[in-house]
Write a protein that binds this DNA or RNA. Sequence first.
DNA 1: ATCCTCCGTGTAATCGATTCCACGAGGAGG
DNA 2: CCTCCTCGTGGAATCGATTACACGGAGGAT
Lengths: 354, 354
Amino acid sequence: MAGIKDVAAEAGVSVATVSRVLNDHPSVSPASRARVLAAVAALGYRPNAVARSLRTDQTRTLGLVISDVLNPYFTSLARAVEEEARTLGYSVIIGNADERPELQDHHVRTLLDRRIDGLLVSPTDRGSPLILDAVRAATPLVFVDRWIPGVEVPVVRSDGRAAVRDLVAHLLRIGHRRLAIIAGPATTTTGSERVDAFRTALGEHGVALPDAYIGQGDFQAESGRRAAERFLDLPEPPDAVFAADNLMALGALDAIRARGLSVPDDIALAAFDDIPWFVHTDPPITAIAQPTDELGRAAVRALAERIAGRVPPSVTLPARLVVRRSCGAEFPPAPRRPDPSTPHRSAPNPSART
Amino acid sequence: MAGIKDVAAEAGVSVATVSRVLNDHPSVSPASRARVLAAVAALGYRPNAVARSLRTDQTRTLGLVISDVLNPYFTSLARAVEEEARTLGYSVIIGNADERPELQDHHVRTLLDRRIDGLLVSPTDRGSPLILDAVRAATPLVFVDRWIPGVEVPVVRSDGRAAVRDLVAHLLRIGHRRLAIIAGPATTTTGSERVDAFRTALGEHGVALPDAYIGQGDFQAESGRRAAERFLDLPEPPDAVFAADNLMALGALDAIRARGLSVPDDIALAAFDDIPWFVHTDPPITAIAQPTDELGRAAVRALAERIAGRVPPSVTLPARLVVRRSCGAEFPPAPRRPDPSTPHRSAPNPSART
DNA sequence: ATCCTCCGTGTAATCGATTCCACGAGGAGG
DNA sequence: CCTCCTCGTGGAATCGATTACACGGAGGAT
């Protein structure tokens, strides 16, 4: 593969001049510039990013460590992140932690070894020493979606409290009284926070949240299934279940089906995180939608600020309730419009939210 | 950040010795080794992967350019690829082409600039000159899922012909006669191939595939919707629709619903690519399942071979039909088992295929 | 005892870029 | 006409690792 020296030889100038042309440094004569450019084209030269990074100590690369690639919420987050990063001239390397702290650490470590310019993390656990080290070493870092309490790092996330309150009100209004939640791991902020919000909202209506109605999940479908089964085995099973993420909702739906029960007639189901498929499940699932794209974009912008040495503020965006049929009919059940939404691509149609 | 020189100083040896310890070269005395290791631990030293790559001319990194991150098929492929690569000591950088050739080229270019050791591509178009250049430059390359005809590159893919034949037989047996397909872009092999397989299978039963029954899609949900609408506007609409990927199936389902029609009573629906959500849609969708994990793994292994300078053979794995209710009841519709499958994680339960 | 090996180690070149510094030419100002 | 800038340019150091080569000392063979 041709190097800068070959280009210099071909153009009859020094490597310094070639480099200057490539980084469009002002002081190069138009003549030299033209010849260099010609040589570059002739040889099909492409600068070696590795060498460049070594010298300049920047890779123009961002790391993104997400909790689970198979979760549509995170993939759309990743997509937004990559998009915004690209417009800012960065590449993104994605690490998938699969909700496993060791894997998360593995990725953080390799990313750091590669000297990425900044890191976006949605931590799978509280307290990874690696991440703490990174913070201490002043690696530009921004938390997205989840965070680690007590660590001085900007957080870009969405606040579901209001939406959870809406959801609870919705459920109670319809007539559900025994509300249960399938929580995420307590080691994640989103895990504990959503339970808190749920409990608080219930409290405001004078409804208690018994321990038996708190299922312990790990944000994976399988755990949702198990938690739902445990609920159904209760002497007095809940009449509504709120899953703290979409995968656990899927598992719960599985479990409920397997018992031959019907959603929403026998039991209501709602989920945190809205995804395209929820429109098409049987029944369509009521969910709390996060502004995923905005989150991704805001996270990248915050990280870019940190890299530039500034101190960006944390960003909190609101989530909102999207009512569908899985909790029972509150509104006339007939589609107001024929539910054109697939909240998928930000395509022509401005996705039907309720 | 501490460099190898700092470690050498701390351990009282030369950088050469440190390097030898790090790459566990045989000729280092146990004493030096111990002191170097101690110094490494004391300083929290981590070798700079950038510098190492520059010197050794290998990055231990693979590039993976997929067509669409929002498509669950590709994310599970990506997950399998990353997993296998990790066990082989490679990292993976994922580039999302979003089905757009320019974006695909953008990613191929940056990946090449980063001097990745090998590239896995699922090409969005026939003939990207960039990819052709890469082939000519002898960049280790393997196509996965899709490929570019006439290019001498190993291909790892799954052959859906048999499964498509099964599907067609299934549809005809149930009583459907007017079978239509929503195709992917003709510029992709999977786009044209699936149509061919479908047409051929129909031919074997003496059924024709009129042009009006071939919808042109682009593997995105929106295009599936439009194609389905066009079908429904036909004087004699099809009574069964086969979507060449899961996203277009989703769009088609949308469109059918929007007309107030029912699947499968008014029209049957089937899709290429099986995904967890298809178990839970209304109705559950009959699909052709690819062995995604095996594909990902095989692709990485083939690429590793190519990197090692050997010439791996192409790999073709069979896909198979998974019958669900979206084409009408052929078997007793009552769940044989309560359909425990979420073909998601390769979890304890060995996913229920029919 | 002498010589040859082998072993452990260090010095320095190298990978491919960027960039500081010096230098010569040419133009402006005195 | 001389001096001083400015501009364009090239030489060479540098980034942080790996590794070829040289070298001294210890141990074995003769």
